[in-house]
Computed example of a mutant assay.
Amino acid sequence: MATSPAVLEVERKFTYKSDVEDVLQALGATLQGQLLFRDTYYDTVDLRLTLCDHWLRNRQGSWELKLPFSPHESGRSSNPVTQYQELTQEKEIIAAVGELLGCMPLSEGMEALVAELGLQAFASYVTDRRSYVMPREGLHVDLDEADFGFAVGEVEKVVATAEEVPEALERINHFCVQLGVTGVKKVPGKMTTYLLQYRPEHYQKLKEAHVL
């Protein structure tokens, strides 16, 4: 069975005001829809995945693994734009997790892999998302409100190759200026905020590992 290639996510998070949707529409953005979903994240007991900036997530039954764009790329940069590779095919996820953990999983499905490796859920929350698209720029904008009282926006462009990343960065930063997002400091995302609030020891370990 054919598998789809991994993609690269180039994204920038931002805080937004109550009039953000009016601004988006004035810039030509189109509302794609609104979605309510639960994300549950998994790691080993000793946190070997997240300490290497690998984020294994189950969203409403669909699995995804986000990992650094390159061995030298991680969440520790102060650059407001981040780059991650995204794996969505279970075989690719299992292979990547096995390689990172130094083992050869026998499992053929993600639920079996979780049991085999003793992975445990360390975060789970519900997000109310309103999604916009900027067709001309090829950008997606998500406005998220999490059930633990945190809201954040994200501008994203998905590319297929590393050669496309510089142009994606330029488009995202230009759009953020139009949106009124001019700061250069990285905005914390939902996961960073969740860990700080509910799993401070995990958060501190990630800080010490320069992941956050």
Rank of each mutant, 00 (worst) to 15 (best):
T3R: 15
P5T: 11
P5S: 08
V7D: 04
R12D: 07
R12P: 09
T15H: 13
K17M: 03
K17V: 08
S18R: 14
D22C: 11
V23L: 12
Q34E: 15
L35Q: 13
L35S: 13
L36F: 12
F37Y: 10
D39M: 07
Y41C: 03
Y42Q: 00
T44Q: 09
V45I: 13
L47A: 12
H54G: 01
W55C: 07
R59L: 02
R59V: 00
R59D: 04
S62W: 07
L65S: 01
P68F: 00
P68W: 05
S70G: 07
S70T: 10
S78Q: 14
L87M: 02
Q89H: 14
E92V: 07
E92R: 09
L101V: 01
P105Y: 10
S107E: 09
E108R: 15
M110W: 08
A112I: 13
L119C: 05
A121L: 00
S131T: 15
P135S: 01
R136V: 12
G138M: 01
L139E: 07
D142H: 13
L143C: 10
A151C: 14
V152S: 00
E154I: 01
E154F: 03
E156H: 11
T161S: 14
T161P: 11
A162D: 11
E163T: 12
E163N: 11
E163V: 12
E164A: 04
R171E: 11
H174F: 10
F175G: 08
C176W: 05
G180A: 08
V184Q: 15
V184W: 08
K185N: 12
T192A: 15
Y194K: 08
L195M: 12
Q197E: 14
Q197V: 06
H202V: 15
H202D: 06
K205G: 01
A209I: 07
H210T: 09
